[in-house]
């Protein structure tokens, strides 16, 4: 993977997409989690992803308590603690999109990003090689899978 390295302090020049949860519409159905898993699976087929292949890490998680629920994934922070803390340089800002992205080839699984992410949005992947995984804003899709598949518009995409 060719890295397009963006500078942390450099702002602007990109149109960063952000996913905003709207808890008043979230019913906790977790379809976002399911479609996130499918989108990040090898086949991108819902049956294969859940029944035949190694199930990928879900990069969005529904938090729920009583009647309140919302889905949360990486915020792609302006001042991303995970980028500054990363030991290997695997976590970086994509110079084109402005997204906080992660290069699994360079990740050693030291868990420093897990230690510093204020949202708990970077997590150990559980794959054979020790790496972390996080929301990549679905670079192959116009609209990220979690947003596109939310039945209630409880996740919306905002472009800055």
């Amino acid at each position: 993977m060719k890295r397009r390295l963006g500078l942390e302090a450099e702002k602007g020049g990109w149109e960063l997409k952000r996913i905003i949860p709207r808890e008043e519409y979230c019913i906790g159905c977790r379809l976002c989690e399911i479609h996130c898993i499918v989108q990040h699976s090898k086949s991108r087929d819902i049956i294969k992803a859940f029944k035949r292949e190694r199930r990928p890490l879900k990069r969005v998680e529904v938090e729920e308590r009583g009647h309140v629920s919302f889905a949360l994934q990486c915020r792609h922070c302006d001042e991303a603690p995970c980028i500054t803390a990363c030991l290997s340089g695997a976590m970086h800002r994509d110079a084109m999109s402005g997204a906080v992205v992660h290069d699994p080839e360079r990740c050693v699984g030291c868990w420093t990003c897990v230690l510093v992410c204020p949202y708990g949005a970077v997590r150990p992947d559980g794959a054979e090689k020790k790496v972390v995984g996080k929301c990549d804003l679905c670079p192959d899709l116009e609209v990220p899978a979690c947003v596109a598949n939310c039945p209630n518009e409880a996740l919306v995409l905002v472009e800055e």
Binding site: R18, I20, P21, E63, E64, R65, V68, S69, F70, L72, R75, H76, C77, D78, E79, A80, P81, P118, Y119, G120
Partner: peptide
């Protein structure tokens, strides 16, 4: 188990999530 923003007061939760501002900032 499952501690997270759901346990925060709503105003703090929205500030952190919706304003998409990192802790350090």
């Amino acid at each position: 188990e499952g501690f997270g923003h759901i346990h925060f007061p709503r105003s703090l939760r929205e500030e952190r999530i919706v304003e998409a501002v990192a802790g350090l900032t």
